[in-house]
Amino acid sequence: MSSTADTTRSRRRGAELEHALYEATLDELAEVGYGRLTMEGVAARARTGKAAVYRRWSTRQALVLDALRHALPALPGFDPQIPARENLRAVFTVLCQLLAGETSFPGLPVIAGLLGDPVLRQAFVEAIVRPRLLVIESILGHAEETGEIEPGTLTPMAVQTGPALIMQACLLTGNPPTPQDIDRIVDSVLPVGRRDPLRTR
Results as ranks from 00 to 15, higher is better:
residue 37 L to Y: 01
residue 37 L to M: 10
residue 38 T to Y: 01
residue 38 T to L: 09
residue 39 M to P: 01
residue 40 E to D: 14
residue 40 E to G: 14
residue 40 E to I: 11
residue 40 E to A: 15
residue 40 E to R: 15
residue 41 G to E: 02
residue 41 G to I: 10
residue 41 G to V: 09
residue 42 V to E: 06
residue 42 V to M: 05
residue 43 A to G: 09
residue 43 A to T: 12
residue 43 A to P: 08
residue 43 A to H: 07
residue 44 A to P: 02
residue 44 A to Q: 05
residue 44 A to R: 03
residue 44 A to V: 10
residue 45 R to T: 13
residue 46 A to I: 06
residue 46 A to N: 08
residue 46 A to Q: 08
residue 46 A to K: 05
residue 47 R to N: 09
residue 47 R to W: 07
residue 48 T to E: 01
residue 48 T to N: 05
residue 48 T to G: 03
residue 48 T to K: 09
residue 48 T to M: 06
residue 48 T to H: 04
residue 48 T to D: 01
residue 49 G to Q: 11
residue 49 G to E: 10
residue 50 K to Q: 14
residue 50 K to T: 14
residue 51 A to N: 14
residue 51 A to Y: 11
residue 51 A to W: 11
residue 51 A to V: 11
residue 52 A to Y: 04
residue 52 A to Q: 12
residue 53 V to S: 04
residue 55 R to H: 14
residue 55 R to W: 10
residue 55 R to V: 07
residue 55 R to Q: 11
residue 56 R to L: 13
residue 57 W to F: 08
residue 57 W to T: 04
residue 57 W to S: 05
residue 57 W to C: 07
residue 58 S to W: 10
residue 58 S to L: 14
residue 59 T to M: 06
residue 61 Q to P: 06
residue 61 Q to M: 14
residue 61 Q to F: 12
residue 63 L to F: 00
residue 64 V to K: 01
residue 64 V to C: 05
residue 64 V to S: 03
residue 64 V to N: 01
residue 65 L to G: 04
residue 65 L to Q: 04
residue 65 L to E: 03
residue 66 D to G: 01
residue 67 A to V: 07
residue 67 A to R: 05
residue 67 A to M: 09
residue 68 L to P: 08
residue 68 L to V: 07
residue 69 R to T: 08
residue 69 R to G: 05
residue 70 H to P: 00
residue 70 H to G: 00
residue 71 A to C: 02
residue 71 A to S: 03
residue 72 L to I: 00
residue 72 L to S: 00
residue 73 P to D: 04
residue 74 A to T: 15
residue 74 A to G: 15
residue 75 L to H: 10
residue 75 L to C: 11
residue 76 P to C: 07
residue 76 P to H: 10
residue 77 G to R: 13
residue 77 G to H: 14
residue 79 D to F: 07
residue 80 P to F: 08
residue 81 Q to W: 09
residue 81 Q to D: 15
residue 81 Q to E: 15
residue 81 Q to F: 10
residue 81 Q to V: 07
residue 81 Q to K: 13
residue 81 Q to R: 14
residue 83 P to S: 04
